[in-house]
């Protein structure tokens, strides 16, 4: 199948990725190509087949909800683009 421009713009918005005007044609073409490949799926009859999420059909293992780690906030914020007083800084969201 081929995608149209508005579909690509919508997906790029959902994924929060800016696509510049001069990249649009290439993006459209390569995504349409990939979607044509994966559309082979549609020909398979999967009526009544249970979807497989974990290849071993295993359930995630649970553990007791206990504190096992100490606080690493300062280490983690050392590599943040912008952090101050234990907070991550971003452009103003609320006026």
């Amino acid at each position: 199948m081929s995608l149209d421009r508005s579909q690509v713009e919508n997906v790029a918005q959902l994924a929060r990725i800016q696509i510049k005007e001069d990249e649009m044609a290439d993006t459209l073409a390569s995504l349409s190509n990939i979607m044509s490949l994966v559309d082979q799926l549609q020909a398979v009859d999967t009526e009544g087949v249970e979807p497989l999420a974990n290849p071993l059909d295993a359930q995630a293992l649970l553990r007791a909800d206990e504190v096992t780690e100490s606080n690493h906030r300062d280490d983690y914020q050392l590599i943040a683009p912008q952090a101050e007083k234990g907070l991550y800084l971003v452009p103003k969201v609320i006026e």
């Binding site: 919508n10 994924a15 990725i17 993006t27 995504l31 398979v44 087949v49 249970e50």
Partner: peptide
């Protein structure tokens, strides 16, 4: 490219046709 394809496959209205379908095929 892969993020966009994946976002599309999971987006409202397409999930059953792509992601769920692919997982069914995965079981087969």
């Amino acid at each position: 490219r892969r993020i966009l394809v994946g976002t599309y496959a999971l987006s409202a209205g397409y999930y059953d046709a792509y992601y769920r379908k692919a997982q069914q095929l995965r079981r087969l």
